[in-house]
Every structure is written in structure tokens, then in C-alpha cells.
Amino acid sequence: MVSLQINTTRRRFLTETARTVCGVSLFGLGLGFYTQKAFSLPPTSLRPPGALSEKEFQAACIRCGLCVRGCPYDILKLADIIDQAATGTPYFNARHAPCEMCEDIPCLLACPTNALNKSLTTIDDARMGLAVLIDHETCLNYLGLRCDVCHRVCPLINEAITLEPQHNVRSGKHASFIPVVHSDKCTGCGKCEHSCVLETAAIKVLPAHLAKGEIGHHYRLGWQEKAKAGESLVSPDASHEYNLPEGLKYEHSGKGLIKN
């Protein structure tokens, strides 16, 4: 009788523990899948200046919203549970309201953890994303007009965005001034995207990993190597010889065919 009772108690204990552990494990599995999805930050959601890489940021950010309170322009938002950005983490949408690039970076100073890295001290060194002039078909400057708005609103005008004159093939006699973003200067503040006059912006700030290509690490650019070494590394430069009739010479840059 006693042994039967012990057996039923033990049986109950084991089945109930198994039930709880299995239930919790299944829950943990589901949570794991959901967590993987949460790493995919939508490209339109930008992190505040100084943010660590997305995975590290999500581990370090304790979702307190102090950066949101720190932002004097109310640009940052905390993600609600239905937003695509990870629950409770701060982000901003450049087309809606761009970073105003405060010199003292109050959002970063407010962060109690290292999610917004304190080693960023100059806002011009921030890399929230990278502006890309994505649509050449609708950009007014590409169409030959002098819109120039993205260039003029850029806090680092003539450094992060420059206007490069090009021959306007359509008119045949004008120049097009093409906005060109320089990744070594662009902070990703989003002012260009915010102020693009089109219905849908032709210039957009994207996360750097989407916007930027990367040259193969084994690639060597001949002209750079040559400049570094002071001479050609492959073989001595041979001057090009044209196989021309007597009395004729050819100069590649400029004069062309020269009769003696």
C-alpha cells in the first residue's frame, strides 16, 4: 500500500515536471525563431547615432527610452510590438523626420548602457546609415534640372554630397549636376531623404551593409600600388607606340594625330 502511494506521488511529480519542462521548452523554441526574425531591422528604420551593430545593439539596449527623452526634436521612437524593429528599441525614419545632428549628441549621452557607444564624440563621425541616390530616372538633377535640394540641406555640404557636372546628352549643350554621396563623410542623418522634393524620395538613407559594396580583399588597384611604390610594380612602363606611316605621330590625350 505504502509503495503504491509512493509510486503514484512519484508518477505525478514526474508527469507534471515533464509537462512543465516540455511546455517551457516548446515556448523557448518559438521564442528563438521569433528572435531570429527580430534581427531583420527594416532598412527604413535607422538607429540613433553611435549605435552598435544591430545584433550587439539589441543585446545592449535595455529599452528604457532615455534616448527618446534625450532627443530635443522628438525624432526617435520606441518600437511598439507590431513595429518591425525589435520591440522597445529606438529608431527613426529619415523620410518622416531626420536626425538633426546635435553637436552634443544628447541621445547618446542619455543612454545608460553601451548600446549607443560613448566613443562617438563628434556627430560628424556618426554612421547611422548611408545616403544613396537610388533612382536616377526620377531625380530632377539627373533629368537636367537644378533641384540641388539634397545637396543644399546636407549638413556636410560639398563633403558628403557633391554636385558633379556631366554632359547633358538630351539637350546636347547643357550640363547635368549629379549629386554624388561620399561614404567617408556621410553620417546617414537623412536630411537629404527627408527634403527630397519628389513624391517618393529618389535619395534614401540605407543601412551601410545594404548601401555599400566591398572590394575583394585580395584585389590590388594598379594605380594605387604604383603611387604607393612610386613606380610600376609589374614591369617598367613602356611608352605606347603607334604603328603609323612616316611623318605622323599620335598623342592620346589632346592633340590627336600630328603631322610633322
Binding site: 512543465t20 519542462v21 517551457v24 521548452s25 515556448f27 523557448g28 521564442l31 528563438g32 521569433y34 528572435t35 531570429q36 527580430a38 534581427f39 545584433k55 539589441q58 543585446a59 539596449c61 535595455i62 529599452r63 527610452g65 520606441l78 510590438i81 525589435a86 520591440t87 522597445g88
Partner: peptide, 29 residues
């Protein structure tokens, strides 16, 4: 068990996994 899971998931995923759905912090935030 759930507390244990929250810590284990933080370790496995390398992020604040539980905080993505923690109803307590969701509600007060």
C-alpha cells in the same frame, strides 16, 4: 523554468530575446 529559459535564450541568441515579448516591460513601456 521560464526565468531559466529567458537566460538561456539570451545566451543562445546573444540578445535580449525574452524582452521582445516580456508582457511586464511591454505594458509599462
Amino acid at each position: 523554468w521560464l526565468l531559466f529559459t529567458a537566460f538561456v535564450m539570451a545566451m543562445i541568441t546573444g540578445t535580449l530575446s525574452w524582452e521582445l515579448i516580456n508582457p511586464v516591460t511591454l505594458v509599462q513601456r
